[in-house]
């Protein structure tokens, strides 16, 4: 039980970073932490005590296996997260090019 709560704590740490920090890179790191917290949570949902990898072969019997569905979900979210983070990092680099700073309080051409 505690371990699931720790995932949520990690999620909240990431949320704090993404919402409260002023530096673009720190915001991105916050997003990454959040994503990993969710991934960790997903993997832990599918874990069983003494479970083994769910690989089916003709000469083996798999009795006590971990849930493979969440693992494939995590694979998908990792790829999605990679695309997202790279997009955000590229935008941050371009923002630095235009504004010369990573501080979001100084990046304010849009108002209202």
């Amino acid at each position: 039980m505690e371990i699931y709560l720790l995932c949520l704590v990690l999620f909240c740490v990431g949320l704090y970073g993404a919402v409260r920090k002023r530096n673009l890179i720190k915001i991105i790191i916050g997003l990454v932490i959040m994503e990993y917290a969710v991934n960790l949570f997903l993997v832990l949902i599918g874990y069983r005590l003494q479970g083994r990898a769910p690989i089916l072969a003709s000469d083996q019997q798999v009795l006590n296996m971990v849930d493979p569905l969440v693992q494939s979900m995590v694979m998908t979210t990792i790829v999605i997260g990679l695309a997202l983070i790279m997009l955000v990092v590229a935008i941050a680099v371009r923002i630095y090019e235009k504004y010369g700073t990573f501080d979001i309080t100084k990046i304010r051409k849009l108002r209202g």
Partner: peptide
């Protein structure tokens, strides 16, 4: 870029 960053986050 600024709007896109905000939107993306």
């Amino acid at each position: 870029l600024e709007a896109s960053f905000k939107y993306a986050v």
